[in-house]
Each structure stands twice: as C-alpha cells, then as structure tokens.
C-alpha cells in the first residue's frame, strides 16, 4: 500500500503538467455539470415556492352555523392530502380584500364577501388530479356554495414542473456523460504516457492488480481534486450571479458531497477502464 501511494505521488511529480491538465479537465467538465445542477436546483426551488401557493378555497353559504363550519374544518384538516385548513370569516375576508386592494378599500362592505375555507395541500399532492379530487370532496358539504382552485393555473404549473424535471434529467445525463467521456480520455492519456512502465512491470512479473492500483489511486485523487476545484468554480460563479443578476441558492452539503463523490467515482472508473484496456493490449 505504501508503495502504491509512493508510485501515485511520483506520477504526479514526474508529470506535473499532464496531471494538472487532467485535474483541470475533470474540474471544467464537472464545473459545467455543476452550473447546470445549480440552475436546476434554483428552478426547482422557484417552482416549489409557486407550488406552495396552490390552494383550494371553498365559499361558505351565509348563515352557516359556526359549529358545522368548525366540524368541517376539522374534517378537511384530517384529509391525507391536506396540510392545513383555515376558516376565513366574512370580517377577515373584508380585512384582506381591503389590504390587497388599497385605494378601492371602501367599495366593499362585509356582507358582500362570503366566509370561506382556505385549504393548503401537502407537497406531492399538488398535481391537478389530486387538487381536483380534494375540491370535489369539499364540494359535497351542503353549506359549501362554490369551490375554486385555479384549475387552469394548477395545470399549467404542473406542466412546467414536469417539463423542467424532464429537461433536467436529460440535460443532466448528457452533461454527466460528456464529463465521463472527457475524464476517461484524460486518464487514458495518463495511462498511455506510462505504457513503458506498465510493460516493464508486466515483464518482471508484477500482477495485474498491482499494476492497476497506483493508476486507480491516481484517478481517484484526480477525480476528487477535480471535484473540489469544480465546486470552487461553481461557488465563484454562484456568488457572481447572486451579486449581479439574481439571488440564487448554493448547493447543500448533500449535493456538495455527492459532487465530490461523483468526481472520485468517474476518476476511478475512468482509470479502471483505461488501465484494463491497456493491460489487455500490452
């Protein structure tokens, strides 16, 4: 193991330019992937914020007994899809309308606005079908006059979300594939540069596993270094965008760790494939 470590360090020291080049290549391919993920994460965030505003509003008939309303609120609140159900009295409705409408505040009086039940749904239950189904169930209460949930808007939002997810997956896979191919080529170059060494090792009776080890470690190290460098670049880009264009959220620890692990993994896989091919050929 000590020898493997020494050989790996030697490889870096002997070919500093080639090593730096491969780390940079890995870093930039992961950087483009990182930028893409950054955009994807922030789009998802934005959509989530919009989604949280999906609500169902049930208008209650005048003169509904308070007890019936309270019972209905408890009932609806315990639906598996429902995050919370709030009762809005006529007075509260008026308050809100006045606050929202500003200069037109005086055109309303309390009797004009009906009391209502405001229902917010749990994440994962905000697709058009579920929203529609919950609305239909609420509609069955005899004192409910009307139920509104912006059907058209929910449908559009849902479509955008699906589109964003699909585009994210396809582009993400494409970016990752490009990164893997480039990194594989880089490591292949490093392996080819040491073809002589490999052939001598084989000649004096080194086992394939032994020959492979320093290359795998080298690939792993390059992948990790590239991953860290890519993160630094992405962070720099993120702070630049946040300062000048639009405030964005950076990755959480999970994605950061996953990014570095991804770098390590393709570094490892890239060298495994290149060395394997080379060993078969020499």
């Amino acid at each position: 193991m000590r020898l493997t470590l020494r050989e790996t360090l030697l490889a870096f020291r002997r070919a500093p330019l080639l090593s730096a080049l491969s780390v940079m290549t890995i870093a930039f391919s992961l950087f483009s992937l990182g930028l893409f993920v950054l955009v994807a994460v922030n789009i998802r965030d934005a959509l989530q914020q919009v989604e949280e505003r999906v609500e169902i509003r049930a208008y209650v008939a005048d003169g509904t007994p308070v007890e019936a309303l309270a019972a209905a609120l408890g009932d609806i609140g315990s639906f598996p899809e429902v995050a919370r159900a709030d009762g809005i009295s006529q007075e509260e409705a008026l308050e809100r309308a006045r606050a929202e409408l500003g200069e037109f505040r005086d055109v309303f009086d309390a009797a004009f606005l009906p009391a209502s039940i405001e229902v917010r749904l749990k994440p994962g239950f905000r697709d058009p079908e579920t929203v529609g189904a919950v609305a239909a169930r609420i509609r069955t209460y005899p004192f409910v006059d009307d139920v509104r949930f912006g059907e058209e808007w929910v449908r559009k939002l849902y479509n955008i979300r699906n589109l964003a997810t699909a585009a994210g997956i396809i582009l993400g896979v494409a970016f990752a594939a490009v990164a893997i191919i480039i990194i594989g080529a880089t490591i292949r170059m490093a392996v080819l540069a040491r073809g002589r060494e490999i052939s001598i090792m084989r000649l004096v009776g080194a086992t394939d596993g032994f020959i492979r080890r320093p290359f795998l470690l080298e690939g792993l190290a390059k992948g990790v270094l590239g991953g860290i460098l890519a993160l630094a670049l992405t962070y720099f880009a993120h702070s630049l965008i946040s300062r000048t264009l639009v405030a964005t959220r950076f990755f959480d620890e999970r994605i950061i760790l996953a990014g570095v692990a991804f770098g390590a993994l393709i570094g490892l896989l890239g060298s495994a494939v290149s060395v394997g091919r080379h060993l078969r050929r020499v």
Binding site: R14, S199, I200, R202, L203, G205, T207, D208
Partner: peptide, 24 residues
C-alpha cells in the same frame, strides 16, 4: 491462467537490445 503468467515471469529474467530501463 492470466494470473499465473506474473508468477512465471518472476522465475525468468528477460533482457532486450534496447535495455528497457525507466529513464527517470
């Protein structure tokens, strides 16, 4: 078997016209 070739090579020595030394 492939794994046995390495063991065999440890029992024989090979030299070439071009020496095949590691330059560094």
């Amino acid at each position: 078997r492939r794994g046995e070739i390495a063991q065999l090579r440890r029992k024989l020595g090979v030299v070439f016209q071009d020496f095949r030394l590691l330059e560094e």
